[in-house]
Design a binder for these strands. Structure first.
Lengths: 225, 225
DNA sequence: GGCTAAGTGTAAATTAGCCGACATTTTGCT
DNA sequence: AGCAAAATGTCGGCTAATTTACACTTAGCC
């Protein structure tokens, strides 16, 4: 029964849908079934054996600290996303941690070595996985290209559009997004100062493009963004 | 004899070193053995069948043009690098082309579909390739992180350090780099205006950190960067 | 309920670096 | 050799956005 549960947890991810029950069982040394609640910090780099994680519920942000002590948001992980050492290479240079944004999260994980074994035995999965990593890379490239060539305003608009598309609930042209980010988070994601972000958000509210509060963000007409 | 040549061209790349002769022969529909000289522009996206390319000799830059008509340098490809649709996903949205920087280049290519078949039959290669793509992603992330959090000066220094490490010839603490980039190229790579880049380079020359000309860049003491 | 910390709002001073404009130098071509 | 085009060098004005600084509001906790 417990085994079955683990099976389904993985099966849920589109990457693993092609695998048979027995193939997934191979991976099912899903040792960690972790639950955590808002604000908690989860260390996963350099901690112990290299793992790949799957976020089953909630939202977390991946934060890294550079040499000067500056916090940078590396990634926002949403329900269903894989994270951790996706490149299958451990590097313990970078100090990263995850912070829980939503009320609670469920994370499961498996060992990188187990995953590698599985890839070796399932070329089709290996190919899918390569494409998956490739897609991630493409996304990263794209978002960075935005960061570099556009100004803060455009970046905010783009970010909101992306967020709305990924997680927003649309009724007509109105999109409602559950807001689990602070303005500071948003500022960091679009790489600007908090103050600039606030100014832009308020400006959007004045122009009736947005309805912002701590719980949710309502975009009255997504086509106007 | 001709077949053998192709074989060695691929064999040279560390990714393919584990493969046997017959395995590589599978890939050896290396249709394109392209030669080109300085300034030439090579289109490879959207052109015909999706391919993966291997630069055997010389240097090229990958340039993309965005909606506003702005040129952006996406990547600098050096001898031995793979490029093209490394993610194994064709997207014909982006308009990209390659421009030859060195006096002459030799490029060979193989079909993406052939490569996929090979990956499916060689799990070990598939795993290596996945790690290879992962490493690429890590590099991309790193360089972008630099672009965003540091100022133009730091970015230039970092770029020079990286370049020196990759291609420089070191004698003692002195590093000499063959300079196949224009100042405009450098400016674009570190994401600043040409004018700012020039100012910084000249400033470095005054401080004796650098010796710049169109043919080569000499860094008298790499540890001082 | 009241206190503290985190989050939000606003404004002014300061600055990095973009942009336009132009002069000079070098390269490649016929 | 001579010309055009590309590459390099230099200068201020301009502006977006960071920084500093402070007041207000909300959330969470004892």
């Amino acid at each position: 029964m417990y085994e079955d549960l683990k099976y389904w947890y993985l099966r849920d991810h589109k990457l693993f849908r092609t695998l048979s029950y027995s193939q997934i069982k191979q991976l099912c040394i899903i040792t960690g079934f972790k639950k955590a609640s808002k604000g908690e910090i989860i260390y996963f780099s350099s901690s112990d054996v290299p793992r790949i994680f799957l976020l089953k519920k909630g939202n977390i942000k991946i934060v890294s600290i550079d040499d000067d002590g500056n916090e940078t948001i590396k990634d926002i992980i949403q329900k269903g996303d894989l994270f951790g050492e996706l490149t299958l290479e451990t590097d313990n240079k970078v100090e990263e941690y995850a912070k829980v944004l939503s009320d609670d999260v469920v994370i499961c994980s498996f060992l990188m070595s187990d995953f590698e074994d599985l890839l070796l035995r399932n070329p089709t999965l290996a190919l899918s996985y390569t494409k998956f990593v490739g897609l991630k890379m493409k996304r990263v490239k794209n978002s960075y290209a935005n960061l570099i060539s556009k100004d803060a305003k455009t970046r905010l608009y783009q970010f909101l559009k992306d967020w709305a598309e990924q997680e927003g609930v649309q009724t007509g042209n109105t999109v409602t997004i559950e807001n689990y980010l602070t303005q500071n988070d948003i500022a960091q994601i679009i790489c600007t100062s908090r103050q600039t972000a606030v100014q832009l958000i308020n400006e959007m509210e004045i122009n009736q493009l947005l309805n912002y509060n701590r719980k949710e963000i309502i975009i009255p007409d997504i086509t106007k963004l």
